[in-house]
Design a protein around this nucleic acid. Structure first.
Lengths: 318, 318
DNA sequence: ATAACATCATAAACAAAAGTTATGAACTTT
DNA sequence: AAAGTTCATAACTTTTGTTTATGATGTTAT
């Protein structure tokens, strides 16, 4: 396929002005230039998109479908241009409000905070904990500048920058004798889950290949990774914890952490922000620092099994 | 801004191969061609995106942010190419499963069904009623081919084709003497709402400038437009109904329908489908027929007040 | 250390593309 | 039927993009 962005812009202008000469004026080119560009586009696509028989002219039915997709392309192009003009404004000072999901915050934040403050003393960092749902909501309403959470998200107005992958491990009451655990081996009758609202709960369920409706099989619900570790210790059973939660465990507890067999399940952690943020420079600085403190092996996952999160029930509309 | 799609592709190839010569090979151009194209792009953007000092080379921090947005542009471009190859496959036969929201279905479907079956006898149309939430869900899981509902949606993998605007009217127990109603005049203590789950409920609340938390003020909840009309008739009070619901009312009931003052509140009705649908041709046919049966004045709303629906609480993740 | 190699940048020449002006055909308007 | 629009076509120019050839810089191997 061979076409360029100008041609797409011409096509849009044609849709709004409904006249070749008027569209040419809008685009600051001569009428024949636009005429020929559209013709080339139609030839290239092999589809007639403009109905020249009506007055004023109009898209054909197929043309309309194409125009619709072209529009979203140009919106993304515009977002790029905005991003660029924003990045060139390289004054690295100001305030950024970010949100981190609860199952990540206590382990990730101490890792980068000091380094960030040293490297960028003029950036004020305000951090809060939020679920994915309310992070997205607050990004859209500009209450927040960025979020650090599990992706992918499939939100049109949100931009995702993947940063690293975090492996899942099994944490059990009694030490597991083998050095790897199969997913089938999870003892679902003695299994600790996070409470509703945590995206990691979704991932846990996905991992167990359980349906949400069968949750009666699962024991209680905890509010944080620390809690499910404690519950497992005192009451028994097993649970799943993310890699970074294992790092600061004392040796005795660490001995009861077991990896999964390859390909190990991982979650993708990303920095996200609104497409029309005006703080790209600052966010880029933040992302840079986080990537500096994260060990390199967490950045590549070739044959890992990425656990996506699918919305259990989207929002409340009809 | 002046750049083209090839340049963007080169930038992506450079990111994956991390070498100018290898990237050139991938893109089937000579190494100098790619080198210069990237240089032009960097000049155009005024930003150095490639760090040529590392080995293998890498994006700069800013370059990475740009690459991320470039990637989504190219994904949209690819979606366009898919759409085109799909549209050229113009065999108008097969089955399409669509979903219509309950507050629209009983009025819209009878309008176009017969005409569609006559015009496209080889297309089997399967229609069901669903809320917005489950329509989107089913589109993503390919249980449905398309949906007809209120937009905008802000879903990345969903394509929206606006079809028409539908005005809202006030329906009241006793005849309103003036010919127009101000939004402030709505009697909120005697107001009928649809039950939770209907997107029109959101719009009604928006219209009343009420918060969801104040719903105790509002009387009961009904499951369909027919119900709220009946409730209003028998018990009293007032409610809001969409234009198409007024069309088939008997004269006596019609006399109790009053428009809002300009700019009148409207809802935008669109045909939506998954970005990677393989039935664009059939859906285009459907959209064409619907637009034929919808009166022209419903297709343009210059100075109307569009009532958007904002997700009360997105999905359940953290 | 230095020869051999690999990688990227630059330059000159060429090819393709996209634009401009000039003009004419088809269709509206009056 | 004359005047005015609107779009398409043609001839020509400008701009952009590509190739080949070559040189600079840095890396690897002996």
């Amino acid at each position: 396929m061979n076409f360029n962005i100008s041609q797409l812009k011409y096509l849009m202008a044609l849709g709004t002005s409904r006249s070749f000469s008027a569209a040419a004026e809008i685009c600051n080119v001569s009428q024949p230039a636009l005429s020929m560009a559209i013709k080339r586009l139609e030839d290239e696509f092999g589809i007639q998109m403009i109905d020249r028989g009506t007055s004023p002219l109009s898209y054909t039915e197929t043309g309309e479908m194409i125009a619709s997709q072209v529009k979203t392309i140009l919106e993304e192009v515009q977002a790029l241009e905005l991003l660029i003009s924003d990045l060139k404004n390289d004054d690295l000072s100001g305030e950024i409000k970010i949100s981190v999901i609860p199952t990540l915050a206590p382990y990730l934040i101490p890792l980068f905070l000091k380094k960030f403050e040293t490297k960028y003393p003029n950036i004020t960092l305000v951090i809060e904990e939020n679920t994915t749902a309310s992070t997205v909501k607050k990004l859209k309403s500009s209450e927040l500048d960025a979020g650090i959470l599990v992706t992918p998200l499939d939100e049109k107005s949100i931009v995702t920058h993947p940063m690293f992958f975090e492996e899942f491990y099994v944490y059990s009451h009694s030490k597991i004798e083998r050095s790897y655990v199969l997913q089938e081996e999870l003892d679902l009758n003695n299994f600790w889950l996070l409470e509703e609202g945590h995206c990691m709960r979704q991932q846990m369920i996905r991992l167990c290949e359980l349906r949400d409706t069968q949750k009666s099989q699962l024991k209680y619900n905890a509010g944080s990774i620390e809690s499910i570790i404690n519950l497992t210790d005192t009451i028994g059973g097993m649970t799943i914890i993310p890699e970074m939660a294992t790092w600061r465990l004392p040796a005795e507890r660490k001995s009861r952490v077991t990896p999964f067999v390859e390909p190990s399940p991982v979650r993708e952690i990303s920095l996200i922000h609104h497409k029309f943020t005006t703080k790209s420079g600052l966010l880029m600085a933040l992302k840079g620092v986080i990537e500096e403190v994260i060990p390199g092996y967490m950045k590549i996952r070739e044959n890992a099994q990425r656990i996506d999160i699918s919305p259990p029930e989207p929002f409340n509309q009809n």
